[in-house]
Design a protein around this nucleic acid. Sequence first.
DNA 1: TTTAGCACTCCGTTTCCCTGAGTGCTAAAC
DNA 2: GTTTAGCACTCAGGGAAACGGAGTGCTAAA
Lengths: 350, 350
Amino acid sequence: MELTDRKKQILKIVTEEYIQSAEPIGSKAIAERMPGKISSATIRNELADLVEMGYLEQPHTSAGRVPSAKGYRLYVNELMEHKTVTGEEAEKITAALGGQMKQLDQVVAQAGQMASSLMGYPAYAVADHKQAVTVQRFELIAVSQDSFIAVVMLSDSRVKSQLMHLQLQVEAEHLRQISNLLNTHFTGISAPEMNGHLMNLSDQVEGQWFLLLNQVVEYAGDLLTQAQTQEVFTGGTSQILKFPEYRDADKAHELMSFISDSKENLPMPTGGASMQILIGPENVSDALKDSSVVIASYDIGENMRGLVGVVGPTRMDYATVAARLSYFAESLSRMFGKPQELPPGEERKT
Amino acid sequence: MELTDRKKQILKIVTEEYIQSAEPIGSKAIAERMPGKISSATIRNELADLVEMGYLEQPHTSAGRVPSAKGYRLYVNELMEHKTVTGEEAEKITAALGGQMKQLDQVVAQAGQMASSLMGYPAYAVADHKQAVTVQRFELIAVSQDSFIAVVMLSDSRVKSQLMHLQLQVEAEHLRQISNLLNTHFTGISAPEMNGHLMNLSDQVEGQWFLLLNQVVEYAGDLLTQAQTQEVFTGGTSQILKFPEYRDADKAHELMSFISDSKENLPMPTGGASMQILIGPENVSDALKDSSVVIASYDIGENMRGLVGVVGPTRMDYATVAARLSYFAESLSRMFGKPQELPPGEERKT
DNA sequence: TTTAGCACTCCGTTTCCCTGAGTGCTAAAC
DNA sequence: GTTTAGCACTCAGGGAAACGGAGTGCTAAA
């Protein structure tokens, strides 16, 4: 059987109406929204075909039609009219970004929250390192007789630092020596390698300095481990309760705790595409079988990518979400993508 | 009418049974759990009195009894047997703390999540500064010709740093001069005061260096503002869906979005008490009128306090939550309370 | 190929009834 | 005075039955 233009148009109407109302759509309602005069009987014939072809489903014999996963897929691929964010929305997004995000390492942490409130669906965010993060440079700053600051500059151009206390007196000269040691032996390598080197040095370095060294290396190691562990930030999980498909507390709970807890299994974009839509059963995780996910990626600094995902019922408003999410991701890329391109003296605002 | 011991005992039984079952408790069930042989008729008389006195409520004429807010209050104040965490629980808490929290400024961010998963109720965490945070010291580290690291040491002994780019060539000497300027004029003062000083200096400092100065001061200002803004971290909000009182999606949504969004209005402990229990209508916010909150505080560093709150139905298991939460808060205080007391060379583990 | 007409299906809602847990009250027993 | 047995009464919750209506599939005519 062939998928005529009229069939497509009917599928489009059913999908859009269902996205809005969450209730099965009947032949009469469709007839009213069809251009030209077509009777509901004709529509019924077409509907029967569309069910047979697998694009639509019927909750029960005497109910209207609902798009199947296959139907949504066709809708998203071919039928959907791609929206652009309105000026108002654009402003809202820009305002949200300008107000909140100033520090580089907060980008990802905030992105989930922000995406959620901008889209009206739960969202999550992760950072993805293109290359393994290493330490680029160490710096030790004397603070008082028994404390100093360890500054660690990472290869993704984030800088981390912490105050450290000692039980022995330190002079600037010692700190200089040790930071030399650190910069010579502990840059550009992984956390396990660091520990290896530390072992090797344990004989060569005096006991008391070794403790200091150890403290800094451990700190740096933690930072690397932390950077490697893909931490997932979620936001607005409670938004799903707005949707009738999750009125049942058990279903809602299942999805919510999946989003918040089984962070490892959240879908991540594959390949190079900057945006991806996963519909219902296309998701690998069982908990997402009845939900859809829209994912986008953006650049952070030079070798890091951020990922944002928006979760909703399969009935989610793909057109709007896609438009907003892609604008959001593009804005983020523009703001945090390539620091060196900023005009002179200007800071990251707007 | 007098509140006899027997009445208290009945109240205790009703409360504990109801906490466990979430269903009204009848006279017969109480009689079975009373020591000695007392008939259900006697209990009924007592129950009627307790209702009249306002300690119990009756959902409808022919139903069992349920504690009122006043009843819970009495239970918490007098009747509840104070639990201690079991060895198993203690281990779990210690393990959670040891595994996750290493950096000082993550303590609060993690505390909410952690508390939630340890207690089985939604939780939130905030930091509370005893004194206003100021910058204690600036340090600028040259990285390349056109970039440097700004290190800012705050009065709460956190150290923050960021890589900054320039459009002009910098030499170590310049950085030294500017950091002197910063340390002389911009330490120990508030963000608005900083901006004031910056204005004053705009004439005295050469244009190109002023831009650099401005960049660092703005960064520091953001840090201070951020420290002042009480950011609230929540965790496990979806846990409320486990409880029958929130089976209704609207109620659940109301509470959940209150916890996640209206962060300013979450209850904070008053006075010096380290733990506080707020029952139902004792909460100021309307959204919490049917819920209870257990709050504890702990020390972070020298002049900062962390607050953790656990949210649940009024029917929540006060004894267990109180025990675990206070152990949790104490552990945190022990770990992060007074850094200088750590034994020599030992790092923050365990 | 489209359309009007019609009988049929089945969900969701309402109504009604019934059951059982629990009560309050009374009057006798302790 | 307090406790207890006994009894009539109340009411929420659940299941069965009845109903209405939206929507269908099919047939036969246009």
